[in-house]
Design a protein around this nucleic acid. Sequence first.
DNA 1: CAAATAGTGTCTATCAGACATTATATC
DNA 2: GATATAATGTCTGATAGACACTATTTG
Lengths: 251, 251
Amino acid sequence: MIVAMSRYDRSAFPPFAVTVDLVVLTVREHALCALLVRRGEPPFQGYWALPGGFVRPDEGLAEAASRELAEETGLRAHSTPGQGSAGAHLEQLATYGHPQRDPRMRVVSVAHLALAPDLPTPRPGGDARSARWALVAELIGQGPDAGVPLAFDHGGILADGVERARSKIEYSSLATAFCPPEFTVGELRQVYEAVWGVALDPRNFHRKVTGTPGFLVPSGSTTTRQGGRPAQLFKAGGATVLNPPMLRPES
Amino acid sequence: MIVAMSRYDRSAFPPFAVTVDLVVLTVREHALCALLVRRGEPPFQGYWALPGGFVRPDEGLAEAASRELAEETGLRAHSTPGQGSAGAHLEQLATYGHPQRDPRMRVVSVAHLALAPDLPTPRPGGDARSARWALVAELIGQGPDAGVPLAFDHGGILADGVERARSKIEYSSLATAFCPPEFTVGELRQVYEAVWGVALDPRNFHRKVTGTPGFLVPSGSTTTRQGGRPAQLFKAGGATVLNPPMLRPES
DNA sequence: CAAATAGTGTCTATCAGACATTATATC
DNA sequence: GATATAATGTCTGATAGACACTATTTG
């Protein structure tokens, strides 16, 4: 307990390093993708890893995550789903602190989940390291080729982040965080289909999503960028929790 | 990023202290209660606080939380809802790391949520400090008397834990963690009513809860400890997610 | 024209909520 | 008997899912 601090010499504690790691998800070409960076140094040299870094002495956890996200992607983070023009949703995911998760020292990592619209270019960060969008389906043990494992415990962190995203778009309007500021119902449906990995009935989806109060707000204009009949454009409404929720099939 | 470590001298980082804090909830006399301990030293001397303590150099986060829970309550923790005879459900809640949340030094606290059945005695832990079960309704800003604020940022942590519990019993079988190993449908209903702070229809609740597959398993015996007609006793079933979920009224 | 997507309508099985009724204990 | 709680049944409105149909674009 904290009150027992006097029993310990403060400096007797070996220092814990505290980092933030980011699970950055986006939807590219009908598939859920995660941002990975390649490690240039040991340990796990040459492995792909989640972007992340140390928390600085004077910054909070969300602040550190937001800074890392901007360094890696150029995105500005916001915690409310809505019309950030080039913004991404950012929320804390979970904290990982197994004593041996980093062979160098005791590192406690506060993982965060970021949801972003498709980015024009997966530009590498300030460093000259390489970065890429990886297919989530190939990283999680879904496909036949489970792919190369990630560095540290990042594979498990990624899995937790994907599961969080999959469940949270059910009962919140978070799926709009994957969309550009204005989007069609069809584009929003493709987000759900990519994240859940299922096919949804376009007609029932349209009825459901336009009937949920506060989810979508018509922008007034239309587009034919998907082909076919012109589709109405929407912006994210103010609602954060969906009532009734979107239901994942066969759950 | 972690790969940038070589840019920093490891010892140049001021040490982060890492603690676990516990939101321990139970239902006593039809009311949701939280375990609090009184601080005997500055800062916040005399304030009530959440139980917690430092993470030791060789233990993981869940391990530290489990150890603290045992020290404070004597309960053994398990992460799966079910028939632990004197066990409590324990899960990670969130991590709090505002730079000034502890005036002494930089402390990052990994908060955990514990759900326990009503304990025979709210015995103080190994220390001689005083501990008590406090009414959640008086701690959260629900009643007219919002009560004395808690130490540090523990008021916010408690609120987050309560909200997690309230939402999680909707779609999981976690409410059984508040019950003894064998319980009646009426006792389980009182758990929902206490956590949500609403009245539920006993007949619809009975139909709903007994119709959800895997939620409850009849133990074969009955009891009259609630008075009236003998009630069937149940144990928690193997299901962890409820389908369909229990719905909180007017949500 | 065909083909694609957008949007609306209809039908049905299921379910949540309201509420009546019967069963079995204690006082 | 009165009263409490347990357990089952009935009715109704809402809705998820299946699927027919129309609308409007491009090729």
